[in-house]
Design a protein around this nucleic acid. Sequence first.
DNA 1: GCCCAGGCGTCCC
DNA 2: GGGACGCATGGG
Length: 275
Amino acid sequence: MYTVSISNFNIRQIADSGQCFRWYMDSSNECDIYAFARKLHVSQQGEKISFNCTEDEFNKWWFDYFDLQTDYKQIISGIDANDIYLARAAEFGSGIRILKQDTWEAMLSFIISQNNNIPRIQKSIERLCRIQSLGGTSPEDHNHWPIPEAKQLYTEDETADMQMLSSLGLGYRDIYIREAAKYILESEDRIKSLKKMNYEEAYRELLSIKGVGPKVANCICLYGLHMVDSCPIDTWIKKIIECRYNGIKPRWMTAQNAGIYQQYVFYYERYGGMK
DNA sequence: GCCCAGGCGTCCC
DNA sequence: GGGACGCATGGG
């Protein structure tokens, strides 16, 4: 057990923020987190956060994942004080951080997310992880299985691939998942080269995948490549532009840290209890 | 039963 | 390049 004090960190808020789909809150407000084929149990009392790992393990695997080197207080202080809505949103969701998730997991997650709801996205990803237990001994905790590798989702046998994928209840997105896997396998180090690109390059590159449009590409940039200037425009953000900014896209959406601010307003609009 | 969901590809103009 | 439309599936 490793306990440490962290500001701007709220596990409930992050779990509800719609950026990650394998954070499971339990009834006692503690959380199981699955990432990088690992599992972490987290509990929180105020700013004191406890992790069921050693300090060394925490620094090795989780410090970066939680984006702990970033000062979110400073990012919040960069908000234009005249923008009352954004300022309130950031205050309301001040415990949110943009996780540094595995790029491939983010690709799969946000391809599945299109025209979908969050509970169903979670279930789809769980089912995707379970394919690895097929043919083996059934693990007690299926969620413990990691995100499947691309080569498990794309083979030369298209019929078999699609039979497997369509059994997962992904809807019409199943073909897109196979396309994404194909993209990864097409050349060496796809992920590495994405990470070397700047935002505009990565965004463009991702659009070349069938099933990845502007919104999903931006989500992969933001959540899978930690390009925090990337600002995914989904139905919620469209609604926010329409209702909170009189139909005029606010300047911050195309400025520095847009993705972080976007996350605050998304969370605020969904859970802030406003009309 | 109906409506909708962190959109996208396709078709049509 | 922009606007309708269909899309699979299941949660509310």
